[in-house]
Design a protein around this nucleic acid. Structure first.
Length: 350
DNA sequence: AACGCGGGGGA
DNA sequence: TCCCCAGCGTT
């Protein structure tokens, strides 16, 4: 049984308490909404806010994005994670310029054919940018609806999409979409929801049952993997660091990082392959272990710091480059930046 | 349907 | 230390 006043009460609440000053809500354009929605995939609002305007300043419109190099796009994405999003954004921008004359389609089904745009993101774009009726089901809406109707278990996702569709009103779609996300983000929060100030608490079944925190049902815990990775962090006296472009497949695919080698690669063999003379090596020692948290497994990063007296004349093999520590060009991945920072700290102490 | 993908926030 | 976050693409 769908409460016909659900959307009405939600909108009335949003008019008074909703968020209306987020960066991507200003001078709202399809392009800005699109970029924001992609950045916001599995990424918290406060984090995206630090990247959004910088990205917009560098790529103010879809043509600027489409004609940019992938390295430039990755550079501005560095630290945001899920770098496949940046690849897809870049590819989709080129496709929109080529196929739609640079105008982002206003149809949900058409949008979903673009790389990186799924059901929820496509719905958010058409609702926020074009005012077309479309239902979203992000983590916030999922939590609100799962509690409102007290649905859990395996079939929950399908049921929640149907509930999202039936609750979405025909008018004020953009505001409603924002409202249900704001409610989930500020009132119907994961732990200790503030039901006392919730506009839809009266019809909330989980609230009535007193078990709101049980919803949405958590996925089964996954096994965590432990991985050990070994990087050769080679810096010179200016702090410049040797990087390699990583293989397209696998972790940090296509990004730049300090050279990674197997445990059975000796320091001598690495230096020889890189064309670095051993007499240029001033010091080699193991650094303290850096632990890097990961979604499904942990990485043990065991960098070996190598100080060399000067840049070797010829180390530019395929895919190798020196990175300037001041600019961090070449779309350096966050882990490379962390390793650089650790390296520089070590050099500073030495 | 399940899994891989990243980094950060918060308890 | 762990779960979660304005999900998507692949298998």
């Amino acid at each position: 049984m769908i409460d016909p006043f659900f959307a009405h009460r939600l909108l009335a609440w949003w008019d008074e308490h909703g968020r209306k000053d987020l960066p991507w809500q200003q001078e709202r354009s399809p392009y800005r909404v699109w970029v924001a929605e992609v950045m916001l995939q599995q990424t918290q609002v406060a984090v995206v806010a630090r990247y959004f305007e910088r990205f917009m300043a560098r790529f103010p419109n879809i043509h600027a994005l489409a004609s940019a190099s992938l390295d430039d796009v990755l550079h501005l994405w560095s630290g945001l994670g899920y770098y496949g999003r940046a690849h897809n954004l870049h590819r989709a921008a080129a496709a929109v310029v080529r196929n739609y004359d640079g105008v982002l389609p206003n149809d949900q089904r058409v949008l979903m054919e673009l790389p990186g745009i799924g059901r929820s993101t496509a719905a958010a774009i058409v609702a926020q940018a074009y005012g077309e009726r479309a239902a979203i089901l992000d983590a916030n809406a999922k939590r609100v609806l799962a509690r409102q109707h007290r649905v859990g278990g395996a079939p929950a996702v399908k049921a929640l999409w149907e509930l999202a569709e039936s609750h979405t009103p025909a008018d004020r779609v953009a505001d409603y979409t924002q409202a249900i996300m704001d409610l989930g983000a500020t009132v119907c929060v994961r732990r200790a929801p503030r039901c006392a100030v919730c506009p839809v608490a009266a019809s909330c079944q989980a609230r009535a049952a007193g078990d709101a925190e049980r919803f949405p049902e958590a996925a089964a815990r996954r096994q965590r993997r432990l991985e050990r990775r070994r990087f050769f962090v080679v810096t010179d006296q200016t702090g410049a660091c040797l990087l390699e472009r990583r293989p397209a497949q696998g972790i940090w695919g296509g990004l730049w990082s300090p050279p990674e080698r197997d445990d059975d690669c000796s320091v001598e063999a690495f230096l020889a392959a890189a064309g670095i003379s051993e007499r240029d090596v001033r010091e080699v020692h193991n650094a303290p272990t850096l632990r890097h948290g990961f979604t499904h497994y942990d990485l043990d990063v065991l960098p070996i710091y190598v100080q060399i007296a000067k840049r070797p004349a010829e180390v530019r093999e395929t895919g190798a480059a020196w990175i300037d520590p001041a600019s961090h060009r070449l779309g350096v991945s966050a882990v490379a930046a962390k390793l650089l920072k650790a390296t520089q700290t070590e050099l500073f102490k030495a």
